[in-house]
Design a protein around this nucleic acid. Sequence first.
DNA 1: GGTTCCTGCAAATTATTTTCTTGATAAGTT
DNA 2: AACTTATCAAGAAAATAATTTGCAGGAACC
Lengths: 287, 287
Amino acid sequence: MDIFTTMQDERGRLSQSEIRIADIVLNDFEFAVNASIIELAGKADVSPPTVTRFCRRLGCESFSDFKVQLARTAYVGMRYLKPEPKSIAPADVAQDIITKAQNALFLLHRGLDVAAIEQAANQLAGAEMIYAFGSGGNSSMIASELQNRLFRFGLRITSSSDHSMQLMMAAAAKPTDVLIGSSFSGRNAELVRAFMLAREAKVPTIALTQSGSPVAHAADITLPVDLPEGDNIYRPTSTRIAYLAVVDILASLVAHRIQPQATVILRRIKQQLVTHRDGDDRQLLGD
Amino acid sequence: MDIFTTMQDERGRLSQSEIRIADIVLNDFEFAVNASIIELAGKADVSPPTVTRFCRRLGCESFSDFKVQLARTAYVGMRYLKPEPKSIAPADVAQDIITKAQNALFLLHRGLDVAAIEQAANQLAGAEMIYAFGSGGNSSMIASELQNRLFRFGLRITSSSDHSMQLMMAAAAKPTDVLIGSSFSGRNAELVRAFMLAREAKVPTIALTQSGSPVAHAADITLPVDLPEGDNIYRPTSTRIAYLAVVDILASLVAHRIQPQATVILRRIKQQLVTHRDGDDRQLLGD
DNA sequence: GGTTCCTGCAAATTATTTTCTTGATAAGTT
DNA sequence: AACTTATCAAGAAAATAATTTGCAGGAACC
């Protein structure tokens, strides 16, 4: 687990002096990674030994080990603590977007429910037919993405972003099928309805959504993606990147579960694309 | 600039001993961040002062500064140097995917042509009509994504993944329009043809693709995305995440350029979604 | 042959950790 | 209620370890 989380988790069990140290590190990370133990101790109004003890308590070998741990987690996973005022210079915009995207991945990874995702992969790998649902720009893309990834392994899958179709498909599905749906907000009422229908018919359901949301409650397995989106209404992308990563993990696990079959089919698809293009077979599958 | 790049760039100008140090750091990063200067010097068969000088030459304050810089860049941007043999345990698969995705973003950022992207944003913001093209799973998603993002700002845009449609649209476009196309491989011959057509008609063209590729050559502005995909044919996702980030940057820049108009329209779209859902207006735009 | 640059040694400096001690707080005991 | 004892936090000082500086020898390159 990373040092920031540890610091926040342990905060309650720390002494006064140690809390002062923790706060300085949390608030002025740049200072903390560059400071010597004496400087840090000075700023926190404690003695150097107290800093050493603080580091030990957090599970580090020594003060320098602490700094390394700190620096290691800081490149990502840190900036969300302080939403800095950014300029609109293109380089800053780019930097900001990249950082936020990396953060989203970092947070996703931290909150990932590996057991649930494995269970979901097992179910998908064994499904007779898969229905992937999602609506509204973002989630519909995730649904197509699921189709795009899974059909390549020889699985039978269809995706739909159309509420009426989703309901009809959910009604038509059998207990040997699987229904997987995505909703960034977790409040897509129509998707909830489709899940309900599936549940009545004992069709297993998987949701990619915010945990605790209506959609999450309606599904058998939830793959939670809980990210603070911030309030920048221009940019849903970092969340989407996290969803894509989940799909990627899911697809990889499914692929491992149906290995031989998948490899053969992939090779066939690739062959098709290569001969169709210009023979450079190191190129990506599907442009 | 990050320390790894600096190390690789400077390698030619380093002395024998310094190269030995650099190689050890590059090959056994874990050792390097945890080692003391004496241990590192010992392993490289040099004296501690040489290590200090090495750090200074690389632009660091001191050895510990060097270690911090190292640890900082290491979380991402490092592992692509050693493609470690990964297990298929779900947690490892997840870890691997997340890391690769973060790396892709890191590399993208490093290779980003900010001037080109700004120029592209200016052109898109001023276009009378935008045509977004891309085919084959990955790029077609990028094309829809462009549409999904830009229409919200009140821009006129359509996307197509259909070669014949692309050609007809390119033929119908005017010099006041903009054609933007994506190709992961850079070898989508049909897209090249569409670009050619556009060029004849003096329609500005923008390409998201590998630099130096046929598609790149055919476009007026290239937004290069050059990533080593590795040879895992199962997973195109990390590249796609990089492309999405480019779209995100592009869309953000466009938004800033047409600010007032965009804000009004976004608010309207959001209002629509909120009343349609359940009144929690902190939810994302478009599920 | 001179110059430049690399390099290691030893000394000096600086940083970090250990040890020891004090003081505070809380629980138990008379 | 007052006193003892235990426990723990935290600093001072000492010890240790790590890092840097200054200097000088030596190699390589004009």
